[in-house]
Nucleic acid binder design. Structure first.
Lengths: 192, 192
DNA sequence: CTCCAATATTGACACCGTCAATTTGTCTCG
DNA sequence: CGAGACAAATTGACGGTGTCAATATTGGAG
């Protein structure tokens, strides 16, 4: 059994404490010692579950990726037939997760703070990327740009927009011409 | 005269030391104490020129924005007449600066590390934004999306792409279909 | 020449990550 | 059932950090 000896489930408690600190005070506040304090253990207890701060943050990021994946699944995207409908549902879930959880979303892409050799972490990001690739492929092969470039464009545009919005830029919500939410309008500008 | 009393030009020396540390070891290595050591002064000397670490990093970022602005100007973009030609020159300069100075480029957009109330800093970013706005406006008012959304899309797509490339994603350089460098192909996908 | 204000130094404090040595608790196996 | 093995947690230390207060130094204005 994996049951912990003293605390019971310290690993889970540490991640929850880290999430709380991350949401309320930003990633800088997520220190090993602060997380340990919040969980009610000594400052060196976390080392048994996370080798160092990077490993702790990586664990938190993996949790967030699973959360995002669930949000995408919850849109019912798997049962949609129209390629455009799928794409807009995906973008909407992505955008909402980022805007509702800015500090979590930022951390998820902070390669400088995460362990890029973590298998679980790279699995989660590759899953998202291949999802986008599949959706773009459904639109067919356009004449003036490769599918791969269109995938990269889609990833760049939504990720760049979410990051800019999180930082307080472009506070207008809708496209002035179509009335669509801006993140929808941006992606539609790319679709054939 | 503004000449410093002891060191001579400590502020400039601190920024140069910070740039050196930033380029070689990343933003985490840019600590007040390390910068002071590199400049050959005591650990508390910088406080006379930068109130705290945030102010130091903001000073460095402003220097980088001026550098980028010069790179854009150096393309001769002001003398170009064709809107598309201008846009591609701008994107090219932006992309090259980011890829050649990854740590500098990353720092420039790290609002969590910079002083967003710094007038000079906001001036520099707004200048870039209005430059993009002017170029997009030259293309005219498209039917299915507002100019503002197109501006946001252009900013998001190039910024998102540069960040992803810096982190080692999408290492392929050219669009598989057109042969254009990818950052050019991405922007062309957006232009009318 | 004198004095002042800007500049730089020194020293202290509270954090941080990380390591080593140690204690505590629990599970397994004879 | 009991003893040992071993994982988990504690304690204490080290060097590093940002930041502040008190002090010393210097160059130039009057």
């Amino acid at each position: 059994m994996k049951k912990a000896h003293h605390h019971g489930a310290l690993k889970q408690a540490l991640i929850e404490a880290a999430l709380h600190l991350l949401d309320s005070e930003g990633v800088e506040a997520v220190t090993i010692r602060a997380v340990a304090r919040q969980a009610g253990v000594s400052h060196a207890a976390p080392v048994n579950h996370f080798a160092d701060r990077r490993a702790l943050l990586t664990g938190v990021a993996i949790f967030c990726f699973e959360e995002l994946q669930q949000a995408i699944t919850a849109t019912g995207i798997r049962n949609m037939s129209d390629a455009r409908e799928k794409m807009l549902a995906f973008v909407d879930a992505f955008y909402n997760y980022g805007l509702n959880n800015p500090n979590r979303y930022r951390l998820m892409w902070r390669q400088d703070m995460l362990d890029s050799s973590d298998v679980k972490l790279t699995e989660m990001t590759e899953k998202l990327f291949s999802h986008v690739t599949n959706m773009i492929t459904e639109f067919g092969d356009p004449p003036n740009i490769s599918i791969m470039s269109r995938v990269v464009a889609a990833c760049s545009i939504i990720h760049g927009y979410v990051l800019l919005r999180i930082d307080g830029n472009f506070i207008g919500f809708a496209d002035e011409k179509t009335g669509h939410p801006r993140h929808i309008a941006l992606i539609e500008a790319l679709l054939p």
